[in-house]
């Protein structure tokens, strides 16, 4: 269908034209595709930064604690994506809990200042300005992070479980400090987990449309939103299909890169060069 052309409101002609693909690569759309990739990449990096310490802590804790922590990380995965996004809205919206607690803090500080007759100096500003946490790109990143971070923790944890801890001891024994050990010993050893975590986070992020739709603002569209709009309101199915095919191509490219990488990795491992 992505090669077809829209000829009527409901009719679609299959003409094998490439017009929709060309259209996807100009102006607004290529910017959006690039932006989606950027947002997903930032989310993936943030997930990685949080997931590594958490996975570390889980894999090194006692067996009982381990199962509790693992279940508590898995449990949000079983709750609906929509519900979790909605629950995040309640926290970060303009009149949400973060802003109301900040307002409370502001008022109590102001009262304290009043008590010391300092209110006239307006140290805290004239009135409380709520933070604008919703409807921007940061809120999308926060939402995506909140939804997809378990997908990053679990693969890293699984690799860490198999990781030979004597290597750590050897590294410290040979005089490396924590940071050096982390970069020279741990990172190369858990890199299969990291790559699968990146794939598990990056691909759903790229295709997500609920989170940008609910948390994002007017100018924070992602490719998923545009595809959805082509099918639901703009009613341009061929163009929507072309866009989603581009999305599938990006996914396949990422997966094949990972495949090549893992082959390279196992080769290196066999040679003992790692």
């Amino acid at each position: 269908m992505s090669y077809g052309e829209k000829i009527d409101i409901i009719d679609i002609d299959y003409t094998w034209s490439l017009k929709n693909y060309i259209r996807a690569f100009d102006g607004v759309y290529i910017v959006t595709i690039f932006k989606s990739i950027m947002i997903s990449a930032i989310t993936t990096i943030v997930c990685l930064l949080i997931a590594i310490p958490v996975a570390f802590y889980i894999s090194f804790s006692s067996i009982r604690m381990k199962s509790i922590l693992l279940v508590s990380i898995m449990l949000p995965l079983w709750t609906n994506l929509l519900i979790r996004t909605y629950s995040l809205i309640a926290i970060i919206r303009t009149k949400g809990h973060i802003n109301s607690s900040l307002e409370y803090l502001w008022e109590s500080t102001n009262n304290l200042l009043n008590f010391f007759n300092l209110a006239n100096y307006e140290i805290m500003g004239e009135s409380f300005i709520p933070l604008n946490l919703m409807h921007n790109n940061y809120s999308i990143i926060l939402g995506l992070f909140y939804i997809y971070v378990p997908f990053m923790i679990i693969p890293i944890y699984l690799v860490l479980e198999k990781f030979d801890r004597n290597l750590l001891e050897a590294s410290y024994d040979l005089g490396a400090n924590h940071i050096k050990t982390f970069f020279k010993v741990i990172i190369p050893n858990i890199s299969p987990g990291i790559t699968s975590g990146i794939i598990l986070v990056f691909i759903p992020c790229l295709g997500s449309f609920i989170i940008p739709d609910l948390l994002g603002g007017a100018d924070s569209q992602m490719i998923g939103n545009i595809i959805e709009r082509q099918f639901k309101s703009a009613n341009d199915w061929p163009f929507g299909s072309a866009l989603s095919f581009i999305l599938i191509y990006i996914t396949l490219v990422i997966i094949s890169v990972r495949h090549v990488y893992s082959k390279l990795y196992s080769k290196l491992h066999l040679r003992g060069n790692l």
Binding site: Y57, L69, S72, P76, S87, A90
Partner: peptide
């Protein structure tokens, strides 16, 4: 590591509990 994990779990569960 312990603090990071605790803060992480709180952020993971706070919205749902709040809901």
């Amino acid at each position: 590591l312990k603090y990071i994990t605790i803060i992480f779990l709180i952020t993971l569960y706070l919205p749902i509990l709040n809901l």
